[in-house]
Design a protein around this nucleic acid. Structure first.
Lengths: 162, 162
DNA sequence: ATATGTGCAAAAGGTTTGCGATATA
DNA sequence: TATATCGCAAACCTTTTGCACATAT
């Protein structure tokens, strides 16, 4: 049956090949932020007639079409997630590499204000938090999470382990 | 005379070679966020006995020592700036590639709160704004700026041109 | 004197691309 | 059938590394 991403592809007039259909399904089913290698692995499991070059080309195409968004969580490889996932950002657990999604309206307002103060219209922005799970007084978590793919901290900002 | 970065190197017990001294000077004089290629260019202008491998090694070493911070503004290459530059973030002009620094205390508080809500201690974070200069009602700018090195928007978040 | 740093060139790792073959609309 | 896509392998680009030589402490 037609996956959500496939439907979006058709809507934008993309030619649907077998490979593209498989990749669309993998993306539709992904609840995390896989990199190209991982997408290739999952797609190959469904249909082994897919080359990694096609995954690269497809992912790039879908990003241009606004269907996918590219993320950089450090580690040198791009990671992808479907757009229209709602507006959110990511908190990366520096010990496990797990990615937690969140959104925050106040934060968005603050950013708008900062840009305006500098004389700019805010076109887009990028925010990633790197944190360590608080040991004692636990607080409810209510966000999507990722399979870990290794700790990382591309900011080097302050005290994160390398 | 001894540059600021050189002094920091000595304090941390680094062996000061001629090459390292030159790179330290280039970094001390940099008011922007140069990538390795640019550092290599500037260092070579002062002393042509420097290889790009040494620049890579030095920049990595200084980052490990906490003297430099690595940044990723998109475009595939890492860019560097001295630490202790005060805590700040960057707004990238998507039309010109110019980088403008800013800081905002309220924003920091909001991030702390977000992490806490998710049950994490905030170790570090990364924030970049991508904006377009507002045409009419100009507002004072009071921040450092960069020589442009090409527009970029690694977020792909919303409407930024590619 | 000894541990470290350097230059060179090769290698690595992720991503892109040219080309002939193939499949979609 | 015309055109877009695919697979393969080579090319690319940034960054890292092995090795022999040079240098700071």
């Amino acid at each position: 049956m037609e996956s959500r991403i496939e439907r979006l592809c058709v809507e934008r007039g993309l030619k649907m090949t077998g490979q593209r259909r498989v990749i669309a399904r993998v993306l539709s089913d992904a609840a995390d932020h896989p990199d190209v290698e991982e997408l290739y692995r999952r797609a190959s499991a469904l249909d082994n007639r897919i080359s990694i070059a096609t995954v690269y080309r497809t992912v790039r195409l879908l990003e241009e079409k606004g269907i996918l968004e590219r993320r950089d969580f450090g580690g040198g490889r791009a990671r992808y997630e479907p757009s229209e996932h709602g507006h959110h950002h990511h908190l990366i657990d520096i010990d496990t590499g797990r990615v937690i999604e969140f959104e925050d309206a106040e934060h968005e307002r603050v950013l708008q204000a900062i840009a305006a103060r500098l004389g700019f219209d805010l076109v887009s922005h990028r925010l990633e938090l790197f944190g360590r799970k608080r040991p004692a007084g636990a607080v409810a978590r209510k966000a999507g999470e990722d399979r870990p793919s290794g700790p990382s901290d591309p900011t080097g900002s302050s005290g994160a382990p390398r």
